[in-house]
Every structure is written in C-alpha cells, then in structure tokens.
Amino acid sequence: MPWFKRKKAGILTTRKEQNEVPEGQWVKCPKTGEIINRRELEDNLLVFPSSGYHFGMSSGRYFNFLFNDGEYELHDTDLMSVDRLDFEDRKPYDQRLKKAREKTGQNDAARSATGEMGSHEVSMACMDFSFIGGSMGSVVGETIARAIKRAYTREIPLVIISQSGGARMMEGALSLMQMAKTSAHLARLDDAGLPYISVLTHPTTGGVTASFSMLGDIHIAEPEALIGFAGPRVIRETIGSDLPEGFQRSEFLLKQGFVDMVVDRRRLRQRIIHLFDLLMDDR
C-alpha cells in the first residue's frame, strides 16, 4: 500500500544489482530496459552502448583486452582451496568449491598473469565475482601476493582488478590473514618505488576493500561500482538514518576523494598505459 512507503529513502531506491550478463541471445539493460544483441554487448566490453551500464566481467576478459593483442602468461594455476576448517553450513564448503569450479572453469576467485601493456611489462591480478562472490580465501590471497611479489622481483608495475564481496567466511581467520599478507607485500613494492594501480569494479567490499584494494598509488573505479567496507544496508541500520543518494558509488566516492578517477571500461586500457608512461618514465 503506497501511503506508508517513502518515494525516496536512500539505499531503498537503488536499482536491482546484477553483476553478470544474463543468459540468452538478447540482453536487457537493468538501467533503462533497452534490449541489445549479446554479440554487440560483448564487442563493447560488456558495457551497454546507450546507457553505459557496466555488466560484470571475468578475469579472462579483462586480461584479453588489457594486455597487448590479448597475449599474456598465466601464473599460479595449480593453487586450489581446501576445506581445512571442515566448515559445515547448509552446503558443505568442499561442495561449494566443486560447484564453483565446474561453473567457472577456474580453481578460485582470482587469477594472475604477466604481459605487456603498451611498452610496459605488467604484473596483473584479477578477481572473479562469479566464483563464490569473489570472496577472498587463502588461495585468492596467495595468488594476489605472488602477483605483487612478481612485480617487485621483476621491477615491473602492478595492476589489481577487484570485484569481491569480502573475506571468505568458510575459511575463518585464514581468510582474514590474507589482508595482512597482501598488504605486507605491497609495502615491499612501495619500497621498490614501483607503481600500483588498483581498479575497483562492481562490487568491491569487505576485507578486500580494507586491504589491497585501497592501498594503490592510483585508484580507478568503473562507473556506478559499489565500493565500501560494510554494505549500505548494514550502515543504514547501524546509524539509523537514510544514506545520501549514490552513497558508496564510484561517482560519490570520487567527490569525497576516496578514488582518484572514474573511467569507462572502454577507455581503461589507454588510461592505465598513459599512467604507466608517466610513472615509469624515470626508470
């Protein structure tokens, strides 16, 4: 009944979230309701041409369009998570891992690679939201830590692309330890004077935001990405009031100085190359 509903109530009026492209030959834009052929959407890097809505994208797709000619070398492909804590919920953790591997064809929620971007050799790690919500467990933390170590060992710049719901609760304290480990490796990268560009996509939340995602030299966010530690619902219930319009979205955080720039995915590669041209000039 409309008489006891508010028309505008902060986070209550935000559009329905959708991180992955729905199945089928035709795709509907969640923002405008327009329809587009899937092939045209994929040719546009999963960005809806008219509205600019960014669908979620896999690590493989990011690697393919960011590295020169889509050529790169994958690393750490032998790492796999195990149920060390014997975690039991409605569905045992080992079964969830098995299902996620079958769904994505990947071992876990992050992959690392090296390749060239423009004239620069780059170490890159990218998360996958489709694998248990991009949650960070031991393997994700180790994959990212090794990507960082590869950067300062080879004396090359680093890019990390984040899309995650936070630490993986099924691994308990083991997942929280990854925050300290990745941060320690980033301190060594900083000591080496090498640049780290952090790309924040939708969503970047929880322990990922609280660790490596917000420790970059430059933070680039994709448009309308949800970025924050706790979710809007938790914050709203904690403070007991509505939140500002667009709270925790890329554009709002840009105004607050939380991110350095908001960049359309279609221009992301050239922007990163340009930044590395400037940051690596003296090397």
Score class of each variant (00 low, 15 high):
residue 246 G to F: 03
residue 262 V to I: 05
residue 93 Y to T: 05
residue 202 H to F: 07
residue 136 M to L: 13
residue 99 K to L: 01
residue 196 Y to R: 05
residue 281 D to F: 06
residue 29 C to A: 03
residue 209 T to C: 06
residue 216 G to I: 09
residue 207 G to N: 08
residue 213 S to D: 05
residue 134 G to M: 07
residue 151 A to D: 12
residue 222 E to L: 15
residue 123 S to C: 05
residue 276 F to Y: 14
residue 242 D to R: 08
residue 77 T to S: 13
residue 51 S to F: 11
residue 120 H to K: 09
residue 246 G to H: 11
residue 238 T to I: 11
residue 263 V to G: 03
residue 92 P to E: 03
residue 175 S to W: 01
residue 116 E to A: 07
residue 83 D to K: 10
residue 109 A to L: 02
residue 192 A to H: 10
residue 76 D to W: 12
residue 175 S to A: 15
residue 281 D to Q: 13
residue 272 I to G: 07
residue 31 K to R: 15
residue 251 E to C: 10
residue 255 K to V: 02
residue 277 D to Y: 14
residue 126 C to V: 15
residue 115 G to I: 13
residue 101 R to M: 12
residue 178 Q to A: 11
residue 260 D to V: 00
residue 55 F to N: 01
residue 221 A to V: 07
residue 161 I to M: 00
residue 198 S to P: 05
residue 281 D to W: 05
residue 247 F to D: 06
residue 214 M to I: 11
residue 114 T to Q: 05
residue 47 V to C: 08
residue 249 R to D: 08
residue 1 M to K: 07
residue 74 L to S: 12
residue 83 D to N: 15
residue 225 A to Q: 02
residue 130 S to I: 14
residue 59 S to N: 09
residue 116 E to F: 15
residue 105 G to F: 04
residue 185 H to C: 14
residue 264 D to H: 05
residue 59 S to D: 13
residue 174 L to P: 01
residue 88 E to D: 09
residue 17 E to Y: 00
residue 162 S to E: 06
residue 273 I to E: 14
residue 226 L to Y: 09
residue 139 V to R: 04
residue 103 K to D: 13
residue 76 D to F: 15
residue 206 G to M: 08
residue 264 D to L: 00
residue 113 A to M: 09
residue 231 G to N: 10
residue 3 W to Y: 09
residue 253 L to Y: 00
residue 124 M to R: 04
residue 51 S to Y: 08
residue 80 M to P: 00
residue 105 G to I: 11
residue 140 V to Y: 10
residue 205 T to W: 01
residue 262 V to G: 00
residue 169 M to N: 02
residue 92 P to R: 08
residue 71 E to D: 09
residue 282 D to R: 14
residue 197 I to F: 11
residue 45 L to S: 01
residue 275 L to W: 03
residue 153 T to S: 13
residue 154 R to Q: 14
residue 69 D to N: 15
residue 227 I to H: 08
residue 19 N to E: 01
residue 278 L to S: 02
residue 156 I to R: 09
residue 143 T to G: 00
residue 184 A to H: 14
residue 82 V to R: 12
residue 105 G to Y: 05
residue 15 R to A: 11
residue 91 K to P: 00
residue 156 I to M: 11
residue 136 M to H: 03
residue 49 P to Y: 06
residue 166 G to Y: 02
residue 229 F to D: 12
residue 234 V to N: 06
residue 260 D to C: 02
residue 225 A to C: 04
residue 77 T to Y: 00
residue 200 L to P: 10
residue 132 I to W: 00
residue 165 G to M: 05
residue 91 K to W: 07
residue 70 G to D: 03
residue 77 T to M: 14
residue 100 A to F: 01
residue 52 G to Q: 08
residue 181 K to S: 06
residue 57 M to K: 10
residue 70 G to E: 00
residue 122 V to R: 09
residue 282 D to F: 02
residue 57 M to C: 01
residue 180 A to P: 03
residue 23 E to S: 13
residue 247 F to S: 10
residue 55 F to E: 04
residue 15 R to S: 04
residue 25 Q to T: 10
residue 43 D to R: 12
residue 201 T to R: 03
residue 39 R to C: 05
residue 98 K to H: 12
residue 223 P to G: 06
residue 202 H to Y: 07
residue 181 K to V: 15
residue 238 T to V: 11
residue 9 A to F: 13
residue 55 F to V: 02
residue 6 R to G: 13
residue 192 A to T: 05
